[in-house]
């Protein structure tokens, strides 16, 4: 059984433990998130099916409360500074370059391999290092789109070696 099937089975168990009652939807989502850190699309669809309500309703409840995350965050969180100094020193092309490299579309922030989450941050206070970027809070100075991608590629390689 693959991971996503195992997860859905566990999700089903959690829903069953609440007697498939609609009023327990928030508690159900809390329990699922406690185990899986976020609520996947399949999870929300399973909840809708088991509770006999619309997927739109489940999604509506999930997006109302701040504690629910609908997106898994990556292992590495990359923040590109978008403060004034970094902006004029062309931080946007770095962000765009990384987005393209990570193949992020629309509002997607996390790469498909769950390794990277790309965000922007308003002024890291490292203006003299502009344009700056952080990877898991470690500051990297004077970035270019190429050097930023190189950093990420490096991490990917290391991860691949570790997993091999």
């Amino acid at each position: 059984m693959d991971a996503s099937n195992a997860m859905l089975q566990r999700v089903e168990e959690i829903i069953d433990s609440y007697g498939c009652k609609r009023e327990n939807i928030i508690a159900i989502m809390q329990d699922i998130q406690a185990e899986y850190k976020y609520l996947s699309r399949e999870t929300l669809e399973k909840i809708a099916e088991k509770l006999g309500i619309g997927v739109a309703k489940v999604y509506s409840v999930a997006t109302f409360y701040e504690n629910f995350s609908l997106e898994a965050k990556g292992k590495y969180i990359v923040k590109v500074c978008n403060g004034t100094a970094c902006h004029v020193r062309k931080s946007q092309p770095i962000y765009d370059g990384l987005r393209e490299y990570l193949q992020l579309e629309g509002k997607q922030k996390t790469s498909a391999d769950q390794l990277f989450t790309l965000e922007t941050v308003a002024c890291l206070g490292a203006c003299s290092l502009a344009p700056a970027m952080t990877i898991n809070d470690e500051v990297h100075a004077k970035m270019t789109p190429e050097s930023a991608i190189a950093l990420l590629e490096d991490i990917r390689r290391k991860e691949a070696v570790q997993n091999a």
Partner: peptide, 10 residues
């Protein structure tokens, strides 16, 4: 009784 669209976010 369809619930195709609903409120999203807040």
């Amino acid at each position: 009784g369809m619930n195709i669209i609903d409120f999203v976010n807040r």
